[in-house]
Design a protein around this nucleic acid. Structure first.
Lengths: 268, 268
DNA sequence: GCTACATGCG
DNA sequence: CGCATGTAGC
């Protein structure tokens, strides 16, 4: 069976439930991981998700900010709940689908100043990465595991519109790039979209709202990721690499999220 | 020539410029008087009004609140500017169109407590009526003059959904009804919509946003008026009375204003 | 309810 | 820019 996993920082699921339905209708993800749902569990538009064919839901919400969810066509089983957020934000949600553990994160953006001692938000971001990396290092690489979500780091020089400029800007500083590299190294994660669209091709999943024409200026970043454990290597490559992509057309829709969905297919 | 004059409390002209365009396309008013534009002059969507065929504009705006405008298919000439608002709000705008003076007002709602001494907003409302009535009393009844806008008073017992109940509620208290009667008496204004839809027929132009189904409950008020001077009697009656109406269908549109447009035709 | 305002966050 | 938060006014 094909398992299509998608991740999307939706920037308010209530504001954009119709866009989610359109994306689901057009791309038929089996599992959709959302970040920044910006609502409590009880405010999540459950009926709309049932109607769009993703009735199985695991929601971690809070009032107004952050919030993550997993919506699935297939039943969800429990997966380890990682309490990685020291501030108690709703930034982690997990489930097991068709035997695959899915860990969905909204990692803190980290504020403006890339300095742990001066900026507690940046410290929080790196702390989150350290906790996550330590958790993953405990795992058996052979187990089927996906780490996905808005990780708020663009890891490679072709994941940013300007590597030199962005190296001083939070999301692509050397210490964040190193934190992502350490996470990947922990159990040898495979960066599925990058495997499909290799460097030096530019690959972005986020474009600022402040850009007048995001296509023209194309000052994007690849902040949204789908990482597969080595145990999923065969499942990920059975279809070839064209089975992961960034759905950048969604960024052109009316009143879009600033993030585009990213998807990857496994064959189980 | 036919001169169709319309008035509409639009509750933010920027939020509802597409609804104004639809109303203008469907009803072809020659002059559209707006209240609660809720923007400064420079924030008014001038281009949209040019495109909808009402390029001649007289705008009295302020930041965020109140604000009135006259938009016209025909050129606007100056008319007396009545400084009736003691608080300096943008509540009065005037122009002369095809020889007819148009005075467009957004009279203060007046707060909750119908007592001049306890409630300064109610005092302001009555003060506004007194100043307006005194100004009108100076005029020659034979001159062509329209007083229109959101006057925030339902003058007759069939202009409210429940006369007995509303007599205690600001908008239909005896002192406000008397203020409206005094204004009409000042030079013998003709209440054009009421001439066309005589009592005891109910006639409303406003329905609260809080009503679940405004058609079902129909707890409306007639707050928006088009008053013609005696000098316009022949022009107003040449087409018969069916030429004035409340466009209550607009109240059913998506994201509507709480007020419906009111229009009246003159033949000049 | 629906619109403004201001502020925080990204 | 555009989501939230809250408050005020009608």
């Amino acid at each position: 069976m094909r398992l299509r996993i998608a991740t999307w920082n939706i920037n308010s699921v209530r504001m954009r439930v119709d866009q989610v339905a359109r994306f689901v209708a057009e791309q038929a993800p089996d599992v959709l991981c959302l970040q920044e749902i910006k609502c409590r569990e009880g405010e999540f538009p459950v009926n709309a998700f049932v109607e769009m064919g993703l009735p199985y839901l695991k929601i971690a919400g809070q009032k107004g900010w952050h919030g993550v969810a997993i919506a699935s066509r297939l039943p969800l089983e429990d997966a380890p709940e990682l309490g990685l957020c020291r501030e108690g934000h709703a930034r982690c949600v997990s489930a097991k689908v068709a035997g695959v553990e899915i860990q969905n994160f909204y990692i803190p953006a980290g504020g403006d100043v890339p300095d742990r001692t001066e900026n507690p938000k940046f410290d929080h971001k790196l702390d989150f990465f350290e906790k996550l990396t330590a958790e993953m290092a405990k795992r058996d690489p052979k187990d089927p595991l996906i780490v996905t979500g808005d990780l708020n780091v663009a890891p490679g020089e072709h994941d940013v519109w300007n590597h030199k400029y962005m190296s001083k800007v939070v999301s692509h500083t050397p210490v964040e790039v190193a934190a992502m590299a350490a996470l990947k190294a922990s159990i040898g994660f495979i960066d599925l979209p990058r495997e499909c669209i290799p460097e030096p091709q530019k690959l972005f999943s986020w474009w600022s709202y402040r850009a007048l024409d995001f296509r023209m200026s194309n000052r994007g970043l690849r902040l949204d990721h789908i990482l597969a454990s080595p145990g999923l290597r065969d499942a990920a490559f059975r279809l070839g690499c064209a089975s992961a992509r960034v759905h950048d057309d969604c960024r052109e829709w009316a009143k879009p999220s600033d993030h585009a969905p990213v998807s990857a297919d496994l064959v189980l």
